[in-house]
Amino acid sequence: MNIAAQHIVDMLSVGGLYALMALGIGLIFGIMRLVNFAHGELVMIGGYAIWLIADLPGPLIVVLSLAIVAIFALAMERIAFRPLRDASPATLLVAAFAVSYFLQNLAMLIFGARPKPFTFADGLIENVVVFGLRVPQLQILSLVLTILALAGLALFLKRTRMGVQMRAAAQDFRMARLVGIPANRIIALAFLVSGILAWVVSLIYAAQIGQLSPTMGLQPVIIGFVATVIGGLGSLTGAAIGGFVVGCLSVGLQIMLPGDLREFREAFLFAALLLVLLVRPAGIVATSALKERV
């Protein structure tokens, strides 16, 4: 019983993290058909930003690291993606791959390839008992942060004018322009929001793995991609669902695989996801984003 509850908590927290990742990627794809590889590097930048300014007071760390990630998110749109706005999705994908690689190796150049310890969360490894469950503090904090971020995003998208505009733009960018939503501003805003999401992921993810490396964004971004494809490219709801599906599957495999196969978990995970795509090539929430017009 307790174990089952523990598993559910695990699935929710992992799934939530993946959903945050998938939403950040899905938002950009919906609006400009860009599969943003470099989203993972925003996570990496968030980690290093905190590490760099670790000696400042807490609130300042939060504000400054967020600002740094946001600036990078906006800058990559302005410098790399805006000149390519009319390019095909495949060209955009290659460009995003290049941006990702550029930032990864820039970090390598500046900070070196060796991982840096990320020790902020070390005080949080102790278990606390909640509703009869022994849960690490860090997991509780992660879960709370994830829920706050998801709720915040939902509120922003539902309740604010800009949020509604952004959803509209993600559904039909051209029509959105025709009802007076300015293209440049809404794209910049989308990158800003995806930057904030990446920053939240970086807090949680860096604390969980306990170290920083230039390539740390890779794992989450690949998971995020697959989650958006599984959920249905072009749908924000789909991205969130896809994140949770991948999270549950990942935790489920961890539980169910026998010990000696556990280290192959990732292979099983991706193979399972490919199978899902075979059954539903357009994802769980199919949109017209990928539909061929004859």
């Binding site: 599969v35 999705p89 495949a90 994908l93 795509l277 090539p281 990928l290 061929e292």
Partner: peptide, 8 residues
């Protein structure tokens, strides 16, 4: 198709 295959 296309992008989905690339991610695959």
């Amino acid at each position: 198709s296309g992008i989905a295959a690339s991610i695959g």
